[in-house]
Structure formats: C-alpha cells, structure tokens
Simulated assay, not measured.
Amino acid sequence: MEIDAAVVEEESGSFDIETVELESPQAGEVLVRVVGAGVCHTDMIVRDQLYPTPLPAVLGHEGSGVVEAIGDGVNRVEPGDHVVLSFDYDDDCHSCRGGHPAYCESFFEHNFGGQRPEDGTSPLSRNGERISGRFFGQSSFATHAIATERNVVPVDTGGDVPLELLGPLGCGIQTGAGAVINSLDPQAGSSIAIFGAGSVGLSAVMAADLKGCTEIVTIDLKESRLETAADLGATETVNPEAVDDVIETVTEYTDGGVDYALETTGVADVAEQAVQTLTQRGTLGIVGAPPLGTEASYDVNDLLLNGRSITGIVEGDSNPQEFIPDLVDLYRRGKFPFDELVTYYDFDEIERAVEDSENGATIKPVLQISEP
C-alpha cells in the first residue's frame, strides 16, 4: 500500500513527507494506522547519525493508533484494537526471559537497525529503493506502520483517554516514570534530584511524587520548565545559571545530599555533578543518551567510601505490556497528568515540532497524524 511518511534522506537532513510503499504484515507483524506520534530526542540524534541507523529512514518511535491488519500467528491483538507502539526486543534472550526486555541482548539490532533483524529486510521502500522502516520496530512518523506483536501494547482508552495522547508512553514518558518506579524504587519519605526537566525528567518528577518522595529537587536551565516541575510535584527547583554551585545548592536543600539522583540530559558533565549530590549509599540512575563513546569521570574513592552506586537505565526497565496500561490507568485517575507536557502538531508541521523540541519551546511534541 502507498502511505505518507516523513523521510530523513541524509545526515542532519529534514523530515520530508513523501509517498512511500509499505508491505503487508508478515507472520508475527501488525499493521497499525498511526493516530499520534511523539517526537523524541532519540529521533534527532539518529537524524544526526550519532546513532547509526541507515539512511534514508522513516523514524518515529512513540506511535499510537488502531490495528488494521495482522499477520499469521498474531493473537494478542486484532483489527480495531487501540494500541501504543513501544520498543522492540527478541523475547528470547536471558534478559527478556527474565522479564527485562529493555536490556535485550539484541536491543540495538531490533531498535536501531532499521530492518527486520531476522532477515535484513525492511517493510518500507520508495520506487524500488529500500528505506529503513523498522526504527524501534515501528517507524511511526507515517500514516501507517508495521510493528511486531511484541512491541504492540493494547490499551483501553474507554472513551475518556485520547488515543493520540498515548504515543509518548512508548518511550520518553515510560523512560522517566519507569526509571523512578521500576529502577530506583525510592521509599516514601526519601529525597531525589532530577537533572533535566524535559519530558523524561518531568515524568520522573511525577513518578517521584507518586512514590512519596518528600524532597524532589529538579535542575534545568529553562525557568518555564522549572515552573512546570514545581506544578507537577518538585519541592525545590535549581537553575544552574542562577546559583554559584549546583552541587552545594542541592546538598543544602536536602540537608547533606539526596538518596537518589536521575540524570536525563545526556551531558557527561551533568552526570559527574549528579553523583556528587548523593548522600551516603545514594544511587544515581543514568537515562540520558549521549553520543556513542561518551565518557564521564568519577572519583573511585568517592563512590567506595560513601557506598554510592551508579546504574544505567534503558526504557525505565519496563515491561511495556504491563507498565504502559498501568500508566494509562494512573492518568485516568488523575495521578499521572502527563498531558500537561504535550503540545499537538499536525503531521505536516513535523519540522516545526522538531525545532520547538530542540529549542525547548515545547516539552513533548505529538504529531496528530489521523483521526482516532
């Protein structure tokens, strides 16, 4: 079938909407009519080839939509179901079998390869030319996407939850919320510092509030985002340009340091700062994705003598089939108002959505691609 899709032709190129060809779903695959698609920082770093998905490519990895057709062997969903598209995984390796698909041993191939890992083919082409069309198992910057039964998550919108809103649960929102709820798992009454107040960081703020953290310090350069953080549960906000020393400021606010810290910016210097805000036996979670090969330095004795730990977190260590429906339910109950982060754009405004995301004018852009 012919569909409209936003194609990135070359490194740092634009997202140009073109007509391309999409195959029918193969065994284990699902054809989804995309209703909404979140714009994420990862789309930009792949556009700029900091992660080497082959170009030309259709990106987009926070899709939501309606199932239109299924391939042989699919039994989790059927045509007409409302779904969120999340990350892909092999469902067979040690991590997947242990309930941690975000740490799939084949994660990179399934999500950044741009092709079916099983046979190297792509469901997308243009005039006979192959286009990478399996970005995060979906390539949802398009009117339709081929996903797999693994990464299609059925959701109950119930007439009161906008389907177009839910795409960002597949990556960014899931990452921030899951990093707190699943990975760090702070106890009620504990303290946390969250570095970065984009969609991931603000999702972490909401999750920390849900978990009962009594001190939630949020650090960002944009005052508007710090104001949003305060509205969503942050007890203190810090603009590094307005204080002499971020580490000293955070430790003063929290009477000696935080129990937990979360780094969402992908900036090595920030990660180095974050670990120094921890109290004894504190834990730093790293979710921000810098260019491949980025290194950060830590004083080994500072970690050793204070019992501090650092952990990497992918996709909030989530099992999307369980965690995304939970987040939808929390939203429905008014306990996780992630809609406050979202600004909608028409599909043909994708370049403006990307620009607004990069300059900080919008926290979480969502493309409205078709009617629910």
Rank of each mutant, 00 (worst) to 15 (best):
E272K: 03
T42R: 00
S122G: 12
P337Q: 08
D209S: 14
G176V: 12
V32M: 04
F136I: 00
F195L: 13
P101A: 09
F338S: 05
Q49S: 15
F336I: 08
F141L: 08
E68P: 03
R130N: 11
T42M: 00
S190W: 01
S139L: 06
I173V: 15
R47I: 04
V275D: 06
Y331V: 02
V180F: 11
D231G: 09
P52N: 06
A177V: 01
V161F: 10
A296I: 08
E149T: 01
P320G: 03
L163A: 08
V161P: 03
E18I: 00
A197G: 06
D185A: 15
E315K: 11
A242H: 15
V46M: 07
T237W: 14
E105L: 12
T214I: 11
E223R: 14
G198S: 11
R97Y: 00
E252A: 15
P54S: 10
F347W: 02
G28E: 06
E272I: 00
V328K: 02
G65S: 04
A289R: 01
A179G: 15
P337S: 05
A6G: 08
N319V: 14
G36H: 02
A57T: 00
P117I: 10
P320H: 07
L305H: 12
S357C: 06
V66R: 07
V66F: 10
D346Q: 15
V180K: 06
G65D: 04
M206W: 02
L169D: 10
L304W: 10
V243L: 07
N75I: 06
R150V: 08
E351I: 01
D259C: 02
A197D: 10
G113W: 14
M206R: 03
G71A: 12
D348G: 12
L184M: 09
V84F: 04
I363C: 07
T148Q: 05
V200W: 02
E227I: 05
C40P: 04
R97T: 14
E215P: 00
D43N: 08
V270L: 09
G71L: 07
L232P: 05
L305M: 14
L226T: 06
K222T: 09
I310T: 05
R281C: 03
L232Q: 04
T53I: 06
